[in-house]
Amino acid sequence: LVRYRTISKIPQITLNFVDLKGDPFLASPTSDREIIAPKIKERTHNVTEKVTQVLSLGADVLPEYKLQAPRIHRWTILHYSPFKAVWDWLILLLVIYTAVFTPYSAAFLLKETEEGPPATECGYACQPLAVVDLIVDIMFIVDILINFRTTYVNANEEVVSHPGRIAVHYFKGWFLIDMVAAIPFDLLIFGSGSEELIGLLKTARLLRLVRVARKLDRYSEYGAAVLFLLMCTFALIAHWLACIWYAIGNMEQPHMDSRIGWLHNLGDQIGKPYNSSGLGGPSIKDKYVTALYFTFSSLTSVGFGNVSPNTNSEKIFSICVMLIGSLMYASIFGNVSAIIQRLYSGTARYHTQMLRVREFIRFHQIPNPLRQRLEEYFQHAWSYTNGIDMNAVLKGFPECLQADICLHLNRSLLQHCKPFRGATKGCLRALAMKFKTTHAPPGDTLVHAGDLLTALYFISRGSIEILRGDVVVAILGKNDIFGEPLNLYARPGKSNGDVRALTYCDLHKIHR
């Protein structure tokens, strides 16, 4: 019993810090008490220290592992850092350059016999395009090294910054494609005289377009951006097909006994025919423009016929181009109408809503002055909100995010209106959640004399007048207030005048 009563005193000691020596009952000389009392004092002292730490809000209350900052290894790049964003855009520009100039170089340097010394005699450094290609190869190699040090988000939505895990993730992902696209074939085969082989191998750079397509997928929600990307894709495919079309004609031209190829026909049409040795002929500019003209006309199913396939190889390629053109029509131009419709969806919704308003007016036989006010209010409210119901949009977000959005939407009023000066951010967040926005066209009466005042109004834009009878008592403008002081009276009061809008007004109100 003594032991039980001794232990039962522990909660009292913990909360009230009572010393055991003052209790005459606990001072009985028993061996059990002498053993338990020192333990009680020690526990009391420890609990006292913990309570003191909690009340003082000291940093040592938290466990040590929670006080440590997340460790980022040296030379690790955050995937959302500004440097990584700028670097990704730079790589994107280099990939676009590669997609345009690599097929052009591979096709127009394929057994090209233009006048001038061969590239091997001039030297590697004197070729501007080769120098640019070398810079692109170096940048792609540097990009691989950067990807080995860039964080990523795993399946659990955690940012991984450990170098080993980053390397394994990159090896399992895009490393092989990036490595093949970054191989400097110019340096590996330079001086061997195989410019045709170098041009063909350099087309491996186009593998990076797969990554670019995935990154550009984030802009699919913007109709104008999608339309622009589709047109660029169409032009890029036409450019690639033009390079292939020229390569076919250029390879067949020296081996044909009869002059029936499209390059021969082009030379005869523009007065620059090929001679018996295969030299001469149109310039590279004429060849490229004509090839691009043929691919565009074939892809769009126009086909004027002034550039036509004559050999079997050219006919087979033309059939493939027609098939590609039909697929592009289905996948690209078939979506253009939907994209344009999405661009004008706001206008369509406006006309639909206006039609419903006019049908309501016609069905209920609203008189002319009231009908005009109804239409003007709808037009003004639509121009202010673009038909978007803010309350319906915010309803799907958590309250903390709703408060931040409301604070942002009402920031101008909260910053410049005098009653809100000096208020804490928590108070402003709470008030912003209570605001209701209303609009009024010129001549609209917001409050009639004798109406119950259940709200306090803040003028965000425009001006109003307060009338008693036919006498203008006051004219209020931006950041002015009218209405009933909230919670100042037990019952809502009545208006002693009319409140009429002089201009288009936007008002925020808080109800009782």
Rank of each mutant, 00 (worst) to 15 (best):
A432V: 08
L279Y: 14
G191C: 04
D88L: 01
H162Y: 05
D186T: 13
K84N: 05
M251N: 08
A430N: 12
P282R: 01
R371N: 06
L92Q: 07
F175I: 01
R165A: 14
L200P: 01
Q341P: 04
M179C: 14
F140H: 01
G193M: 04
L266G: 01
D178G: 01
I146W: 01
H439Y: 01
K418F: 05
E64L: 14
F333A: 03
M139F: 14
L201A: 05
T385A: 05
Q379S: 10
A381N: 13
L327G: 03
A432R: 01
W87S: 01
L188E: 07
T424C: 09
D217M: 08
P128F: 15
F190P: 14
F296H: 01
D137F: 01
G278C: 01
I177W: 10
G267T: 04
G116M: 08
S308G: 01
Q341C: 05
R205E: 09
A130P: 01
A242D: 01
F185G: 06
T385R: 06
L93M: 10
A155S: 14
D178A: 01
L446N: 01
W75Y: 06
A119I: 07
N312Q: 01
T437S: 08
A403C: 03
Y377L: 01
W87E: 01
M251V: 01
D137A: 06
L241I: 01
T113I: 07
V142H: 01
F185I: 06
I340D: 01
S192I: 06
T120H: 04
A130H: 05
D217V: 09
T352L: 11
N250F: 04
Q372R: 10
N156V: 09
T120P: 15
F175D: 01
N250V: 14
E114K: 14
E376K: 15
H416M: 08
G261K: 01
F333V: 04
R349V: 08
G249Y: 01
A392C: 04
K111Y: 09
I405N: 01
G281H: 01
P367V: 03
T311E: 01
G278A: 03
K272M: 03
P309W: 01
E157Y: 04
A119E: 08
L188P: 08
A381L: 12
F420Y: 01
A213L: 04
Y384P: 03
G334V: 04
R71M: 11
A291H: 01
Y329K: 13
G422M: 11
Q68R: 11
S258Y: 03
D444R: 07
L93G: 07
I248S: 01
F420R: 03
F228V: 11
L109F: 08
W89F: 02
M179Q: 01
C126M: 01
N154I: 10
S283I: 01
G281W: 01
V226F: 05
N410V: 07
C243V: 01
V357Q: 03
V86H: 01
T98N: 14
D133S: 12
T300D: 01
L134T: 03
R342A: 06
L129F: 08
E375W: 08
I244T: 01
S383F: 03
A155L: 12
N306D: 01
S301C: 05
F435G: 02
A107S: 11
G334E: 03
T113H: 11
A69L: 05
R218K: 11
W382I: 03
L176S: 11
M231D: 01
N386G: 12
D217E: 09
A330Q: 07
V447G: 03
I183T: 06
E196W: 04
F140L: 01
R205L: 01
T424F: 02
Y288L: 01
V302E: 01
F378D: 04
A69K: 14
S105H: 15
D186K: 14
E64H: 09
P441Q: 06
A238D: 01
R342F: 05
L90E: 01
G422V: 09
N386L: 07
V393R: 02
E158N: 10
Y104C: 01
L206E: 01
E158Y: 04
E252P: 01
N250P: 01
I248L: 03
A247G: 01
E64C: 07
I146F: 05
Q379D: 15
T385V: 03
G422A: 13
D444N: 10
Y219Q: 08
Q341V: 07
M433C: 10
S277W: 01
R218G: 05
C427W: 01
S276V: 04
W382A: 04
L134V: 07
C243M: 01
Y377W: 04
R371H: 04
I166F: 01
I244M: 05
L94T: 14
I244H: 01
C417E: 09
V168K: 15
F234P: 01
Y274N: 01
L409V: 08
L370I: 03
L206K: 01
L197D: 03
R165N: 05
I244A: 05
M139P: 01
G280M: 01
L109W: 03
I72S: 06
L401P: 01
Y293V: 01
Y384H: 14
S383P: 08
I366M: 04
V447S: 02
F304Q: 03
R165W: 09
N154D: 12
R429G: 03
A440N: 09
V132I: 05
M390A: 05
T102I: 08
G422K: 12
V393H: 01
F171G: 08
L292S: 01
T295E: 01
I72D: 14
K418S: 09
F171M: 14
D286P: 01
K202H: 03
F435V: 07
P367R: 08
Y274T: 01
S220W: 12
R356I: 03
T438I: 11
L110H: 07
G173V: 01
P282Q: 01
T347E: 12
Y65W: 03
A155E: 14
Y329A: 15
V131M: 05
K84C: 06
S105Y: 07
N386K: 04
F108I: 01
K215E: 04
R205H: 06
W262I: 01
V132A: 05
L207E: 01
T300V: 01
C417Y: 12
I388Q: 12
E115S: 14
I324M: 07
R373I: 01
I96K: 01
I244N: 01
D257E: 11
T438S: 11
S308T: 09
L355F: 15
K436N: 10
C417V: 11
G199W: 01
P273M: 01
C427T: 10
E157V: 13
A381Y: 15
L370G: 02
C126S: 01
Y170C: 01
E195R: 12
M390P: 07
A225D: 01
I77C: 05
L94I: 08
L263P: 01
A235R: 01
V132E: 01
L299Y: 01
G249C: 01
Y274I: 03
P128A: 11
P309R: 06
F228E: 01
P128H: 03
V132G: 01
L201G: 01
G396M: 10
K272Y: 01
D143G: 01
D178P: 01
L414W: 09
T102E: 01
L413Y: 01
Y288H: 01
I248T: 01
I366V: 06
T233F: 13
W87H: 01
L200N: 03
H239Y: 03
N410D: 01
G116N: 03
E252Y: 04
I141L: 07
V159K: 01
W75F: 10
H162V: 11
N310W: 01
S194R: 11
F360Y: 03
Y293P: 01
P273V: 01
N410M: 06
A213W: 03
G346V: 07
F234G: 01
N310Y: 01
S345H: 12
P128R: 03
C417M: 13
A330M: 05
Y288E: 01
I177Q: 01
V95H: 01
W174T: 04
H169M: 06
V132P: 01
V210F: 04
L241H: 01
W382E: 01
A99M: 01
R218C: 08
T385M: 13
T385F: 04
V302D: 01
V160T: 06
S297N: 01
T76Q: 05
L216D: 01
V447H: 01
P128I: 14
M139Y: 03
K425C: 04
W89C: 03
R342K: 04
F101K: 07
E196D: 14
L134D: 03
